[in-house]
Amino acid sequence: LWQGRGVASSKLWMLEFSAFLERQQDPDTYNKHLFVHIGQSSPSPGDPHLEAVDICQIYDKFPDKQGGLGELFQRGPPDAFFLVKFWADLNTSVEDEAGCFYGVSSQYQSAENMVITCSTKVCSFGKQVVEKVETEYARYEGGRYLYRIHRSPLCEYMVNFLHKLKHLPEPYMMNSVLENFTVLQVVSNRDTQETLLCIAYVFEVSAGAHGAQHHVYRLVKE
């Protein structure tokens, strides 16, 4: 049921993804602000299928050299490729950043016991500026294998980027910067090198007061 309705290939389901800022208010209280968030509830048969986006429309926003989006897509499998448009919530209202933690958490599910490698590339004008590679082992739980990347610290580049972005005076200026900022996440099977999920993230700032929002699309070649 996940396939075609969420970020899920035939081998791996993304259950949760969030980038957040956490601040300790007092010894017992933590404030957590979500910049972006995907929390997928279990799909039902009536849920709509994802819309498709032609990968050619976004190629230039991501690295195109060896191991780039085009080469990955050619290798397939085609059901593993997604585009996520985030409306990020930058209303953190945190002035004093001392004691703040910037992190990313994500969780995946599979019917198979694998070792997964998660590569996250931050791109500016389509060129990679930083990459983080993480390896995760499965935990068997309730008849399925879960992979959890828990509170991975955001790199210095991203912390600085967010800091500058949220201090821009107007949303249109933030969106102008975000037009050339993208993230490419590739989750693969460490032992076979098979692509399990490839997610291209693009961003705008949220105009509402209801937190981060997102749309998910299938990437296809028309």
């Binding site: 819309e51 986006v53 032609d54 050619c56 429309q57 976004i58 190629y59 230039d60 448009k85 409306w87 037009e179 693009v202 705008e204 949220s206 105009a207 509402g208 209801h210 937190g211 929002q213 997102h214 749309h215 699309y217």
Partner: peptide
């Protein structure tokens, strides 16, 4: 073909790409 430096607004993307979803 690559769109090059064509602004995102001018690319062939679904209408929903520009509509911030309402919170559920």
């Amino acid at each position: 073909a690559k769109p090059g430096q064509v602004p995102m607004r001018k690319r062939q993307l679904p209408a929903s790409f520009w509509e911030e979803p309402r919170p559920t």
